[in-house]
């Protein structure tokens, strides 16, 4: 199809004919009194203020689209966050997340002990807490004190996460009572072996056993002494140098 320029040649016969027709037309001027008649008719017409409705509409549309874009972006971010959380709670977690959570759990016993130092420490000494127990206490305290966790669902997720990780945590903290109990077991085992042993024991073996027995007995006594002193300290007794 021809473009307008193609069908508008500079000076073909049709153009010449039209220009001749134009030249034949009389020069048109407005008749006398035309302007006054028009001015008379428009004098009572009030022109409205410049209509900016179209530009306002455009601005509104642009603003709406901006809000929609931001809303969609926020929704996507929210969905990704929820998806990430669901993946963790299912136990399919990457190593980075696992490490971060393990560190938090391991730090909790220290915070708990420091907090409880201002309270009577009898409870701590009588029932020393393992990492697992401290983690449970921490979680139960969170239920009461942590205002930032408002959602019950969020709390349940936290508990689930910690419980999953507890089974993999080693017992890293041995209490004094645990050490004492281990030592007592050792002494009982040693004495039992010595008393029921049917095989003849040489003098050298007997001497070695005697030395071992005395050494272990001395260690057990020291441990008992240490336990008593520690109990006194916890109950407001004298202070040691450490």
């Amino acid at each position: 199809m021809n473009t307008p320029n193609d069908i508008k040649p500079n000076n073909d016969v049709l153009r010449q004919a039209m220009q001749r027709r134009k030249a034949r037309r009389p020069i048109h001027e407005l008749p006398e009194g035309f302007e006054d008649r028009v001015m008379e008719r428009i004098k009572d017409i009030q022109i409205p203020v410049k209509d900016d409705s179209s530009s306002k509409k455009k601005g509104t549309v642009i603003r709406l689209w901006s809000l929609r874009t931001v809303g969609v972006a926020a929704s996507i971010a929210g969905l990704l966050f929820v998806y990430n959380r669901m993946t963790i709670s299912d136990g399919v977690v990457d190593n980075n997340n696992m490490m971060a959570k393990t560190e938090v759990v391991r730090q909790q016993p220290q915070r708990t002990i420091k907090t409880d130092a201002s309270q009577p420490t009898k409870h701590i000494v009588a029932e020393p807490l393992t990492i697992k127990q401290v983690a449970r206490v921490e979680v139960s305290q969170r239920h009461d004190t942590d205002e930032r966790i408002s959602s019950e669902q969020q709390e349940e997720k936290n508990i689930e996460t910690i419980n999953l990780e507890e089974d993999n945590l080693p017992d890293m903290m041995l209490s004094i009572n645990d050490a004492e109990r281990v030592m007592d077991d050792f002494m009982k085992q040693y004495e039992g072996i010595a008393s029921v042993s049917a095989s003849p024991v040489t003098e050298q073996e007997h001497n070695a056993n005697e030395v071992s027995y005395h050494v272990m007995h001395e260690i057990a006594q020291n441990m008992n002494e240490f336990t008593k002193q520690h109990n006194n300290l916890s109950n407001g007794g004298t202070t040691y140098g450490y």
Binding site: H28, E29, L30, F34, E35, V38, M39, I42, K43
Partner: peptide
């Protein structure tokens, strides 16, 4: 409003 006369003088002939 009187300025409208100028617009009429300028375009009135062609329009007519």
């Amino acid at each position: 409003t009187e300025e409208f006369r100028h617009l009429m003088r300028k375009h009135g002939g062609t329009l007519l």
